[in-house]
Amino acid sequence: MRSFLNFLLPEDEYKRNRIVYFIAEAAVIQSVVLFSLLLLSSWFDWGTLEGYSFVLFSTFFILIYTFTRYMLSGMEHVNVVTKEQLSKKQKGIVKQGLGVGFFFLVFMLIFEGMPNSLSGAIDIILPTIFFVLIYITFDTISLKRSYKKNIELLDE
């Protein structure tokens, strides 16, 4: 099927189908939530909701929902079926997390500038540590779920 989404989707058809479903689910939920907010804001006289909040919600909701469903579906790490592969992949995730964390730190330094006080340094280091921990945690959850699913399906 021809779609501009094709370049974002994986080659494997099962993965493609599932991801398209996740995006569609996110779009439906988002429409319902936005419409409900619109109705509620007029019924309860909340005044006009800020356009900025709508845009922020709309932008990130689909991304976060799709990513979370993908992560929990256990289809990211399709080739991990032994304990050795699991442990090797886990080490890889930690290394990757640290690497991505380094780029995050550089990014923060470019935008925030070099800190000239302890609190300034903490403002840069803490978000970086938090980012690395979240990255590693999410990827580890995805790995564990993939491993479990792969074991269930392995029948040679």
Binding site: Y14, E152, L153, E156
Partner: peptide, 22 residues
């Protein structure tokens, strides 16, 4: 053939082959 070999041959993943077989 293993699930992985078949998967590689048809452009799918091992998981997809496993899911079809199950």
């Amino acid at each position: 053939m293993t699930q992985e070999q078949l998967a590689n041959q048809v452009g799918a993943t091992r998981q997809t082959i496993g899911l079809i077989e199950k």
